[in-house]
Amino acid sequence: MRAAVLEEYQEPLAIRDVDAPDPAAEGAVIEVEACGICRSDWHGWQGDWEWLGLKPPTGQILGHEPAGKVIEVGDEVENIKEGDRVAVPFNIGDGICHQCRTGHGNTCENVLPLGFAEPVQGAFAEQLHVPTADHNAVRLPDGVSSVDMAGLGCRFMTSFHALAHRADIEAGDWVAVHGCGGVGLSAIHIADALGANVIAVDLVDEKLQKATELGAVETINASENDVPGTVKAIAAGGADVSVDALGIETTCRNSVMSLGTRGQHVQVGLSTQDEEGMVALPTDLMVMQEIEFIGSLGMPPTRYDEIFRMVDTGKLDPSAVVSETVALDDVSDRLASMNDFETMGIPVIDEFA
């Protein structure tokens, strides 16, 4: 099968033939119909996240936002069958640890990051093996497009979990989203669907325009404005919830400082080599205003049905965040464009042969 293989960091991925996977007893093989190209893939391609133990080894197939059709299952698989169309979360759980058994599979005690570790080769390929398929393969509703659902593997469901499960959003709350990439635009669309008034923050006017189309009621160009001061002016004292959807020091600190009293900062973006996970924060301000700092990772696969129900009723539309479809051969160009934050929305691979 054809796959995009990481042979050297920051160099084009090698598009070459590799062996197709066979299913483990509890696993399944899917034919990948679509896979998003995510900024997390860019981090892996850059050689980031060694400080988290997530730096992918050379020889790794990247890609962690797949949707496709099950073509083979192992002897011990009970709930997933050949012909099912599924999405796969990027945080592969074992299904049996305490976290998985209590509904928190996104923080599995033995998690394997899809596309970042040798045991779980990624989805920039014609086929993908899914371990513990009954837990990790999420059956898609009938009639939905794999391209539209590709973002569910990471960005869209990550934003949904952050806002619907981790933050306490009520109708009419002010929610500021810092960074209008794929995660940020997804967060804007979801926060709007949850009844919030959304403020979008970015450096690029085109992305801010897209944010408006997805439900932002106010936008701030961070290159031209004092971000915390402008958010506080718009939100009459500060945002109720503020999301760092990028992960650099500036957006993290701006997000915290944009909050009003008892506001909630939600950290979704992971940091780069500049920060290595360490960011200075205004802790005295956080104490005085009783500000909460909340981390949010992925989404438990057992709760995907919440997204599907909102899609079914038209409240959410993951396809609205898909910016373009490309071929497997184009993946290196799309990763390189992320060096300067040029990518808007979610580019999706839908041609693998």
Rank of each mutant, 00 (worst) to 15 (best):
I80L: 05
R166V: 15
P23Q: 02
S319R: 15
I92K: 04
L285F: 12
E26C: 00
P12Q: 12
L6Y: 11
M278V: 14
F116H: 15
E218D: 06
F352V: 07
T158D: 07
W51Y: 10
W42E: 00
G153H: 07
E224H: 05
T325S: 14
L152F: 09
F156C: 08
N339L: 12
V29C: 02
L13N: 08
A150D: 07
F124Y: 15
K81H: 01
V5L: 10
N79L: 09
G68D: 00
D75L: 01
P300L: 10
A176M: 13
F308T: 13
C180V: 08
H129W: 05
D17G: 10
I307K: 08
V86S: 08
G263W: 12
Q267F: 12
P347C: 09
N254G: 03
E290S: 15
N339K: 15
D312V: 05
S146I: 02
N110C: 04
D202K: 03
D333V: 14
A14G: 04
Q10E: 14
D205S: 03
R166L: 07
V204H: 07
A196D: 03
V86I: 06
E290F: 11
S146V: 05
G122Q: 11
W51V: 05
P300D: 14
E8L: 07
G63T: 00
E351P: 05
P318W: 06
S145V: 04
V144G: 08
L114N: 05
G143S: 08
H178T: 04
R39H: 12
L208V: 08
C108G: 09
W45C: 02
T283Y: 13
E31G: 01
I80W: 04
P131E: 04
V88S: 02
V73S: 03
R16K: 15
E76S: 10
D305P: 13
